[in-house]
Design a protein around this nucleic acid. Structure first.
Lengths: 170, 170
DNA sequence: CAAGATTGAGTAGTCAATCTTC
DNA sequence: GAAGATTGACTACTCAATCTTG
């Protein structure tokens, strides 16, 4: 199975290429995210032993009353495929960071629960992580830029909603 | 991914937490990127058989005079670890998308060259991909927003440069 | 049958060690 | 010794198939 050129089943000849302004925004968006997340990921792993995925799971659970979520809720919040989530939870369970519990109201379902170990891990990691986010993101931008970026990301999210983004996690 | 930040219910000494405006920008930045890239990645794979990584390699090569780059240049452009690049080039070579060539001026080095197959692949994929980028990104934003985002991403990269981002690819 | 979730196989990425050449 | 690059082992993600319950 290979590269395979796709037949032009859509009218793609009329799609205009990106102009300079559009290229600058798009490529800058991609490049800044790659570099920034690369830095934060390495910092987190080195200083706390947690991956980005670990951190995301722990944060979502810690923010919930009862420190528990149904697996599918967790998957939706993180936009993860269900199999990715299941595999990851298996690994985190083996490390003692989370636990699985049966769901009384739905026999198919499973709760994911924060353990004491998991709580300690996120409480230790969060301040270090926030420090880096502040240093490399928040403090690099003006207040106006933060607001503008918030608006931009909202617009992108609305567009994805309108486009009926087919989500593998739902 | 560091999706969200853990809200402490007690004061954390010396770590200024993110306020609402900062949280909105940071979480929006992460969430919008996750959703947008997820959509584009699936579209690219489904319609062209190329992964994000394949596409990035092919674009970088196709934009170069001679359609060739030293491996380390390619790695820097994409911010990839050298081992990741090497493994990926091995797979792309097996599929006939790129080829390796010896470097005359430096016996240690290797050139990565676009093949005719690779050129056909990127030429077929690019219009479809650009169409999606335009639909979900460019057309979702105003001209002012595109400029603002360009400025924001430049600021982020300047901060990373100044921070002496320790790069695994260099 | 649809939804929630898990499993296994195959593919991709990371880390450390290695090799060659400068 | 350092830079460019590759390799192998281990870990992580994707896709399709499966199982159970609603």
């Amino acid at each position: 199975m290979t590269y395979q050129l796709f037949p032009y089943d859509r009218d793609v000849a009329d799609v205009p290429w990106l102009d300079d302004r559009e290229q600058r925004a798009w490529r800058g968006y991609l490049a800044s995210h790659t570099r920034l997340m690369g830095h934060l990921t390495r910092q987190l792993q080195r200083d706390t032993g947690l991956s980005d995925g670990d951190y995301a799971v722990l944060v979502n659970l810690s923010e919930t009353p009862g420190e528990r979520l149904r697996a599918f809720q967790l998957g939706q919040a993180m936009q993860w495929e269900k199999s990715r989530l299941s595999h990851h939870l298996t690994r985190m369970t083996a490390r003692g960071l989370v636990a699985r519990e049966e769901c009384p109201s739905d026999g198919r379902g499973a709760y994911v629960v924060l353990t004491a170990t998991g709580r300690a891990a996120i409480e230790g990691a969060a301040p270090l992580h926030v420090q880096e986010v502040r240093r490399l993101f928040v403090d690099a931008l003006s207040g106006d830029q933060l607001d503008a970026l918030g608006d931009i990301c909202d617009a992108l999210r609305r567009r994805l909603d309108a486009a009926g983004d087919s989500d593998p996690c739902c």
